[in-house]
Amino acid sequence: MTNDVEMIAGLESRAGGHAVLSGALLAASRRIDALFAAWAARWNAEEWHFPAVLPASELDRLDYFSSFPHLVTFPVVLDDAPDNLRRLASGEIGEDGAIRLPAIAPVRDVLTPAACYHFYIELAGSRLDRSRYLTTVASCFRREKFYRPLSRQWNFTMREVVCLGTMEEVAGFLASFREALTRYFSRAGLPVAWQEATDPFFGGISNPRLVAQMVDPVKTEMVFSGELAIGSINSHRSFFGETFGIGRDGAPAFSGCVAFGLERWLYAFLTRFGAEPERWPAELWEPA
């Protein structure tokens, strides 16, 4: 489908694999997120909204930079000394489209790589007297080796539904969410298979975290048509609870999340049901 992106009304592509949406496709994309939100509402998940950036120091607590240095994107500003700013003001953009930056100010933030990180930072140090269900949609950034509109973008939209609680509470949440999604895929006629997966750790097999995920799979992806993960179900065990001091029932809280890649769902719908959203089956909009 990606070769025909320009042929679809309401979808333009830009460098970086970005998709520009308008008209019926934009409306469809909003309805897809409303579908995710309807699932989140089953668990009375509280909706939060976060900034596009999160503190690098918090991400460092997760060992993010040693695990995923190849994915991270930093927002930078210039050292604000007038001479330095003048260097940019009088500079030129190269023919390759790259801008030469003069001195940059210390970088203390990261552009959000995954929506749910914000929750653990916000809940740091808290004691939960019941399981918590939370949801947010975030504009996320991950650097990749190549990009394609809708299916692999530098900047993409991720909706997550998160549960924090005891091991049993989180396991129950993930299992019933998975059942609901399995019913939905079947009813909607969307060819999606569940597949165990690992995160793309830097260093591959030499990274101990990848070895740990190989022997203890914590990620199950929703793979559309054997080609593209449109979402995933993730068990974090008590990693975030321990790292951020979040307690539940006298022990570090367990957590798990269901993550949806909005543009990839749009890609799946377009591929499976065609370029005109008004012709898509009504079952697509009913959360099972």
Partner: peptide
């Protein structure tokens, strides 16, 4: 052991 996180992911290499 791992599901209950009695050891961390980084300790899996030590276990090996």
């Amino acid at each position: 052991i791992l599901e209950q996180r009695l050891i961390t992911s980084l300790q899996v290499m030590d276990l090996i």
